[in-house]
């Protein structure tokens, strides 16, 4: 009796879930990109929206750019939006650190992660003609005297990757913050900096064309494009994974079935071959992590970052 009641409850729950999911979406879904058009987050979001609209009936995912404050303006907008599943945030790692670093008026807990679609591991890149042939050469030199590393900005995950290496591998770095990737690329190719902490997505095409070399990648496995490049762990740097992430998040309080619907939608998109090809052509690795796994990634990053921010007095 209890068994069948339990079964009925489960079935009923499943039916209710699908009924709710069937009611959603009835109108267009706003995908808020907190940056101006043309950047990596904007481009990937548009590729996703295009693919999503192939799976949706009667509603569309519409990219809306709300730039300003280094992403904080758009992120705050979503944090305060109605939790009904019609406002999505193109969430990046900066959401985790912005409250501490930039005094953003929200907390990570104000968002419910939906799914991650791109994980970008950190790499150490050097000029093609660098004196460092291997990651061992590089780290040994950095232990003796600080190496000049160009980064996207103080307090970014790339800066923190370097700070993490200082604690785990005793490597010393002088950081040269730049505005935008172009400036950093010029500094590395032109030999004005010893190297850079970059996301793999940015470094890849330049490493393939031979203008920069990648010494190590902070991922749990080697990259298929660069089978000879060791992971941080293999190189004995004591950091298993260091990656920036891109995904979808909704305001906290969004109904569970809606989150599940969006998460499944993302899974379908991630399996779409046209989408995979377009992402790969643009230099992005199309991955998929469901809501739970995405939450784990966020929590782990938040813990790592929080320690580094405190140790180095980066907080506002």
């Amino acid at each position: 009796m209890m068994k069948s009641l339990g079964l009925a409850l489960v079935l009923g729950g499943a039916l209710a879930t699908s009924a709710l999911a069937q009611d959603y979406p009835v109108r267009d879904i706003d995908l808020v990109v907190p940056f101006a058009p043309g950047g990596a987050v904007d481009v990937t979001s548009r590729l996703i929206a295009e693919a999503a609209n192939g799976f949706l009936d009667g509603a569309e995912v519409v990219v809306s750019n709300r730039a300003g404050g280094g992403g904080v303006v758009g992120q705050s907008f979503v944090a305060n939006a109605e939790p009904d599943g019609y406002t999505l945030l193109a969430m990046t790692s900066s959401v985790v650190t912005n409250p501490q670093l930039k005094g953003a008026p929200y907390e990570v807990a104000d968002f419910t992660p939906v799914a991650a679609y791109n994980l970008d591991p950190e790499v150490i890149a050097v000029p093609a003609d660098s004196r460092f042939a291997t990651i061992e050469d590089f780290i040994n030199a950095a232990r003796e005297a600080p190496l000049t590393m160009t980064i996207a900005g103080i307090g970014t995950s790339h800066h923190m990757a370097g700070l993490a290496l200082t604690s785990t591998a005793k490597a010393q770095f002088t950081y040269v913050p730049a505005k935008g990737f172009g400036e950093q690329l010029q500094a590395v190719i032109g030999g004005h900096a010893d190297g850079a902490f970059w996301p793999m997505g940015e470094a890849m095409s330049h490493a393939k064309s031979g203008t920069v070399r990648i010494l190590a990648v902070a991922s749990d496995m080697r990259d298929a494009n660069f089978p000879d490049v060791p992971t941080f762990e293999e190189a004995g740097l004591g950091i298993p994974i260091w990656a920036t992430f891109r995904g979808w998040a909704v305001p906290a309080g969004t109904p569970e079935p809606v989150v599940a619907f969006l998460s499944e939608l993302m899974e379908k998109i991630a399996k779409d071959e046209t989408y995979q090809k377009k992402m790969a052509d643009g230099g992005f690795d199309a991955t998929y992590r469901n809501a739970d796994d995405f939450q784990k990634i966020i929590t782990s990053y938040a813990e790592q970052a929080s320690v580094i921010i405190k140790e180095n007095n980066l907080s506002e």
Partner: peptide, 27 residues
């Protein structure tokens, strides 16, 4: 020739190209 944008407007070309699967630079 290198994938380095010269100014803010030419940087927008990178975005437009990326949408079409093109990455500026030697490749």
């Amino acid at each position: 020739s290198l994938g380095i944008p010269g100014n803010s407007t030419s940087a927008l070309f990178i975005g437009a190209m990326a949408l079409h699967g093109l990455v500026p630079g030697p490749l």
